[in-house]
Design a protein around this nucleic acid. Structure first.
Length: 713
DNA sequence: GTGTAATGCCTTTTT
DNA sequence: GGCATTACAC
């Protein structure tokens, strides 16, 4: 039975769904039925006779792709499994694996996750003898950050250091050489990191025209979701695959761009019509998700942006209840109040339809304790992942070695539990293994009997072709090691390993299994728990929606995160992040602004300033509640922020030239460098009316300083 | 070279 | 609560 598209969709959605044969850009506001549009277009293509295998659907997470294909399939009443769908990274991985030889990986390659990459960077740094004895030398995390930022943004390391970490400029040269060595290490050990997947994929397409032709012939219809969060390579990849006038539909929302930190470039959306010939522009502006009361607030948040968005969402729904801004006395009592609020909400909505959102993973810890205490089940998105746990990585190391004997990262791991073998000896043995230096190996096995067992074990594994079977054997071998390594909680870790074995049985290829774990984090997450409250970072909440949303820790330094504010533009990204958070809510939105924050650095509760995004909101768009010392909540009768007077929803200073120009503000030239008597030279991040500046001082961090004390340079 | 204990430092977001 | 470094004993 044919689908009645005109009846199921609004005119703009219909236009997007019916579009075919040339490039199109769909600007889809939050909650405007973006997913629905993609799903229906998939269904429409297939209904019109397009074979599913000619469609490529690129999304931000693999879960999103799977869900869309599933929905399209159920509308059509047929299976769309032939469709290629996934993230840029997973798609690239698949092609690279089939064509690795072209790039010089004769026997394939191993994909590294973040932790692996960091370890390699650290090793490279040590080998170069950099930073010896320097306590304040940048950590491996920072080192890798600089390297991947430089790659993703396609700017030199020097440029990155200068614009967003200039307090590290003394190390810029080191970064350069570490980056060079890192690249060589990866190549010589058949390793790839996330960035390599994209860049080497591009390299492959450019160096192998016949492969490119083949892919183009196959993927005649391409759809890209979350286009605002693509970076430069990704945009080039789309263009390579589709051609300038191919059938490519990009969907995105410039107001929801929240991945600039990893090189996402809003310019991709803005330039789409320039790059793709005769691109059609379609706008989806009607919001089907949130109540008007919620949208009023989110529109205010967006209005304060320095980069202007010509976007005012209008709801298709009732006015609804006003959002609430709650001021607990501390972040400890905040947890208690969130729990109480959740209990109230749970009478109206199922638990999995309620979410608590926060800027960074660690911010939910106090809440997690409080939830456990009262016995509310929860599931957490973002933050630490299943496969990042040490014991999981240990077990996977054995598996990796069966396919890539050059994988030094894995060798280190499997040697570590053997007493007497430290990093040096480990390296030596691994090298001897590679160069077939039998003498050294024999000597080593004599000295460390456990080594023979290990090698026998690894040899045994190479006969297993199925990952499930291999993991069974590994678990047996690893069992005693686990108990010794983690005496406190090894039973709990054991269940994690059992889960891993379970997941592994779904795979027939070890390579695929390993890659999927690093590319997609949690398979475990698939079985999304029914009846469990959702805790999520805002980033991980992208694309999702809940009836009730609670946002915590809306105070200066946490949201906006002080770590994120290296450049003036970053403030706007934090703002968009809050916009994304608020627009997740369908019916109920509650925001928490604790008066004090516990600082684990000195174990003291410190006073906190409300987030500027909250302080600037006009009083009529939210109810204000305050925790009293009697530990109850009291609603404030007067209008919201007294400090918001005169701000009118726009905290940023009137900068005449910028307010007029649409599109991204060009570098905000008026916010420059300044000097302070005590803190020295610093970079001005924002102006705070009437007479203050927010300044980033290297070594001292962000400060809000009265203009009189600053010397502008 | 390795293992252990003590110290000082910082804790964003994700493929 | 983790990470990197240092000091010290084997």
């Amino acid at each position: 039975m044919p689908i009645d598209f005109a009846n199921e969709l609004n005119p703009s959605q219909l236009e997007a769904v019916m579009h075919q044969g040339s490039p199109a850009l769909v600007i889809a506001g939050a909650g405007s039925g973006k997913t629905r549009t993609i799903v229906y277009r998939l269904a429409r293509l297939v209904q019109d006779g397009v074979p599913p295998e000619n469609i490529l659907l690129l999304t931000f997470t693999r879960k999103a792709a799977q869900e869309m294909l599933l929905r399209a399939g159920s509308i059509l009443g047929r299976n769309l499994s032939g469709t290629s769908g996934g993230t840029f990274h997973s798609f690239a991985y698949g092609v690279l694996r089939r064509n690795g030889r072209t790039l010089g990986f004769e026997t394939g390659f191993t994909l590294m996750d973040r932790a692996d990459s960091e370890n390699v960077v650290k090793e490279v740094k040590d080998n170069l003898k950099l930073g010896k004895g320097d306590r304040s030398y940048p950590k491996k995390n920072t080192l890798l950050d600089m390297i991947t930022k430089s790659r993703n943004k396609e700017r030199s390391i020097d440029a990155i250091v200068e614009s967003e970490a200039y307090h590290l400029s003394a190390y810029a040269e080191d970064f350069q050489s570490i980056a060079g060595e890192y690249t060589r290490f990866k190549q010589s050990h058949a390793l790839m990191d996330y960035d390599d997947l994209l860049f080497r994929f591009e390299e492959l397409l450019r160096s192998d025209p016949s492969l490119l032709e083949e892919l183009r012939a196959r993927y005649q219809h391409i759809m890209v979701d979350e286009y605002q969060d693509t970076n430069k390579v990704q945009a080039r990849l789309v263009r390579l695959l589709s051609g300038e006038s191919g059938d490519v539909v990009a969907v995105g929302d410039d107001a929801q761009s929240i991945y600039a930190f990893r090189g996402a470039d809003v310019a991709n959306i803005l330039d789409f019509p320039k790059i793709f010939k005769d691109a059609k522009l379609i706008r989806l502006e009607r919001n089907y998700r949130s109540t008007q009361a919620i949208l009023n607030l989110t529109n205010h948040i967006l209005a304060g942006a320095h980069t202007k968005f010509d976007k005012t969402l209008v709801s298709d729904r009732d006015t609804g209840r006003l959002p609430r801004i709650v001021h607990p006395l501390s972040d400890q009592t905040q947890a208690k109040q969130v729990v109480e609020e959740v209990i109230k909400l749970a009478k109206k909505y199922p638990l999995h339809d309620i979410a608590v959102l926060f800027r960074a993973g660690y911010q939910s810890y106090p809440l997690e304790v409080a939830l456990s205490r009262v016995g509310i089940r929860y599931q957490k998105y973002g933050g630490l992942r299943f496969h990042e746990a040490a014991h999981i990585k240990d077990v996977l190391a054995y598996l990796r070695l069966t396919h890539n004997p050059a994988d030094m990262v894995a060798w280190r791991r499997v040697f570590a539990p053997i007493k007497g073998i430290g990093p040096k000896t480990a390296d030596r043995i691994a090298k001897a293994r590679l160069t077939a230096d039998g003498k050294y190996i024999a000597k080593a096995m004599k000295r460390f009997p456990a080594l023979r067992e290990l090698f026998d074990h690894l040899d045994g594994l190479r006969n297993c072709s199925r990952p499930g079977q291999a993991l069974e054997r590994i678990n047996m071998f690893y069992q005693p090691i686990l108990a010794e390594l983690y005496p406190d909680d090894y039973p709990k870790r054991q269940t994690g390993l059992d889960q891993l074995s379970q997941i592994a049985t779904n795979y027939t290829s070890i390579d695929d299994f390993l890659a999927d774990l690093t590319l997609d984090g949690d398979q475990e997450e698939e079985k999304r728990k029914e009846h469990a409250l959702v805790l999520s970072t805002v980033h991980s909440s992208k694309g999702l929606e809940w009836s009730a949303v609670l946002i915590i820790d809306l105070v200066e330094d946490r949201f906006p995160s002080k770590r994120a504010l290296a450049r003036p533009e970053d403030m706007d990204e934090e703002r968009r992040l809050l916009y994304v958070a608020c627009t997740r809510a369908k019916d109920s939105l509650t925001m928490f602004v604790p008066a004090t924050i516990f600082n684990r650095f000195n174990a003291v509760s410190e006073p906190a300033t409300p987030s500027p995004f909250i302080a600037e909101l006009p009083g009529d768009c939210a109810e204000m509640w305050r925790e009293t010392y009697a530990s109850g909540l009291r609603q404030e009768t007067q209008h919201a922020g007294t400090h918001a007077s005169g701000v009118n929803g726009n905290a940023l200073p009137a900068e005449p030239s910028d307010t007029l120009s649409p599109g991204p503000a060009t570098g905000t030239p008026k916010l420059g460098i300044c000097r302070h008597k005590i803190f020295g030279q610093g970079k001005i991040i924002a102006q705070i009316p009437p007479n203050k500046y927010r300044v980033n001082f290297p070594g001292f961090g962000l400060k809000v300083i009265v203009a009189d004390y600053l010397e502008l340079l």
